[in-house]
């Protein structure tokens, strides 16, 4: 129901941020995620950054996936 793309923050000016997905830059409103910093990955939904992506957790999920699927690194 709610499309959101993982985007990397490239620039911040106050509450306005600029994020990049696959090289495409888009303005993102940071009012729901003021703690976001440049180089963070965030979820972009309808022009707003709604949550920060956690790289460690992503790695952990992939590790668990490999364990379940019994596929080595």
């Amino acid at each position: 129901m709610c499309l959101a793309a993982p985007a990397r923050i490239t620039k911040i000016e106050g509450e306005r941020g600029w994020v990049e997905v696959g090289g495409v830059v888009r303005e993102a409103n940071l009012q729901l995620l003021p703690e976001a910093k440049v180089r963070d990955y965030v979820l972009l939904h309808a022009g707003f950054a709604i949550q920060k992506l956690d790289e460690e957790e992503a790695e952990k999920t992939l590790r668990i996936l490999r364990e379940i699927a019994e596929i080595g690194n």
Binding site: P6, Y41, A58, L62, L65, I68, A69, I71
Partner: peptide, 20 residues
């Protein structure tokens, strides 16, 4: 693209399906 492509891996998908 980060956080997208790694979660579309065919080999892992096939392994998961087998486990399911």
């Amino acid at each position: 693209m980060k956080y997208i492509d790694e979660f579309r891996n065919r080999e892992l998908a096939q392994g998961l399906i087998k486990k399911i």
